[in-house]
Design a protein around this nucleic acid. Structure first.
Length: 418
RNA sequence: GUGGCUGUGGUGAAGCGGUCAACACGUGCGACUGUGACUCGCAUAUUCGAGGGUUCGAUACCCUCCAGCCACCCCA
């Protein structure tokens, strides 16, 4: 193997690109229906953007970022997630001045220096959506409904919605203290990681998969019991809206997020089909992020969905299209006629293939079959002389006579389409 | 960053010290006398991830490295 791709960076080959396009098209359709407009931002940003938004002490910032120093001695980073860059653009271009309420979506590659495994790569792709400027839980509910709609539209029933509330800067400290006290009493039962976490980030212990920790934290205090009244109201409203629209969900009070900027509502679309990677999409509210990045005090909520994971769930369904017609020629003498026909048909929107290499008729027909062409037509001396040819339906071999003109062949293809 | 497993052609794989490196699929060409799919024939790895070592001999045994996968951590 002479030269290979960088570890954790994958090629999306022709046999799977159709599936990717399908996913992207469905997402765009659903998001645009909901009033979201695409925003395209760079894949490279100043490192500071991420350390300030995602959080200095998070794993993403501590060990997973692709950070480089460029030739101008600036520290730059390949974006590990999309929200930070979108919010930077929102602030930089003062999008809020014209309208603080913005509904934006983005799609593209993200980069995280992690050990690759199933459903996790160093370059991976996300489609995400954000709503700024709305405090009302209506926005939370719309985002969740939109996410649910996407999975319904694409035909997946598997990922299910889990929601939680992380409270706000008002009520979260009290909860952290309560949780830490609880953990202190059971310190001996916790795994080493959790012992460390109980001091640095006690919420994380709730997410630990070590059986001893699961058991030890079973009776841990719930965030939901410690929400301040406005957070509590907010969360009940989100649930009420979800109920109003009959959106299925479950509450997971132990759900934790990896990014520091989340407040109040957080959620995940989870599946049991992807091994250790259960989250297909995740997001939440980030009421403090925009001001934290130097913008006005505008709230936000959004999510990101992992395309590799969605593609994995879709399996190997085939979304590629096939040629309408294959034109075979008996000899090189007929290729001019065939080429002119192909050109005319292509210009009229019919997908045509023909032989490029002067192969035998048998080889050409085999190729027509392999490409899954719907129809074929053979042009030889007789056809050129008479101006008529046999139009053959490949599926069952049914044949019909046609004139060798763009209009008539086109009519044959269109007619047989019904 | 840590651990486990694996590395044979385009693919799925047999082979476990001496084989023409099996078989299947795929691909290409051809036969069935201007038409694919079925059937049949032929072709398709001087080479077994790379580099060392043991041996008369290594795809097979040992070492090192590299790569992939899965898991941990964490996450989409």
């Amino acid at each position: 193997m002479a030269l290979t791709a960088v570890k954790g960076f994958n090629d999306i080959l022709p046999d799977e690109s159709g599936r990717w396009q399908h996913i992207e098209q469905m997402a765009r359709r659903v998001f645009e229906l909901n009033g979201f407009a695409e925003i395209r931002v760079p894949v490279l940003e100043k490192t500071e953007l991420f350390s300030r938004s995602i959080g200095d002490a998070t794993d993403i910032v501590e060990k997973e970022m692709y950070t480089f120093t460029d030739k101008g001695e600036n520290s730059v980073t390949l974006r590990p997630e999309g929200t930070a860059g979108v919010m930077r653009a929102f602030i930089e271009h003062k999008l809020y001045a014209a309208d603080p309420v913005a509904k934006l979506y983005y799609l593209g590659p993200m980069f995280r220096y992690e050990r690759p495994q199933k459903g996790r790569y160093r370059q991976f792709h996300q489609i995400g959506a954000e709503i700024t400027g709305v405090h009302d839980p209506l926005a939370d509910a719309q985002v969740l409904n939109m996410l649910t709609a996407f999975f319904r539209e694409i035909g997946l029933t598997e990922p299910t919605l889990q929601i939680n509330s992380l409270g706000c800067p008002e009520c979260r400290p009290a909860y952290r203290t309560a949780l830490r006290n609880f953990l202190d009493e059971r310190m001996a039962l916790l795994c080493d990681d959790c012992k460390r976490r109980s001091a640095t980030n006690p919420l994380r212990t709730l997410d630990c998969k070590v059986p001893g920790c699961v058991e030890a934290t079973a009776g841990a205090p719930s965030v939901l019991d410690h929400l301040c009244s406005s957070c509590d109201d907010h969360f009940s409203s989100v649930r009420r809206y979800l109920d109003l629209s009959a959106t299925p969900y479950s509450i997971n009070a132990r759900m934790v997020r990896g990014l520091d900027y989340y407040t109040r509502t957080t959620f995940e679309m989870v599946t049991g089909l992807l091994g250790a990677q259960s989250a297909v999409a995740a997001g939440g509210r980030y009421d403090g992020l925009i001001s934290q990045l130097g913008g006005p005090a505008i709230p936000g909520i959004g999510f990101a969905m992992g395309l590799e994971r969605v593609a994995l769930l879709l399996g190997s369904q085939n979304f590629s299209s096939c040629p309408d017609l294959f034109i075979a020629t008996m000899g090189v003498g007929e290729r001019d006629v065939a080429f002119r026909l192909m050109d005319g048909l292509l210009k009229s929107g019919i997908r045509v293939e023909m032989d490029y290499e002067g192969k035998s008729l048998k080889s050409q027909m085999r190729r027509a079959d392999k490409l899954k062409s719907r129809y074929s037509v053979v042009i030889g001396e007789n056809e050129v002389a008479s101006g008529r040819a046999t139009f053959k339906r490949m599926a069952d071999g049914a044949q019909a006579d046609t004139a060798l003109t763009v209009a008539e062949i086109r009519a044959c293809v269109m007619k047989s389409e019904q």
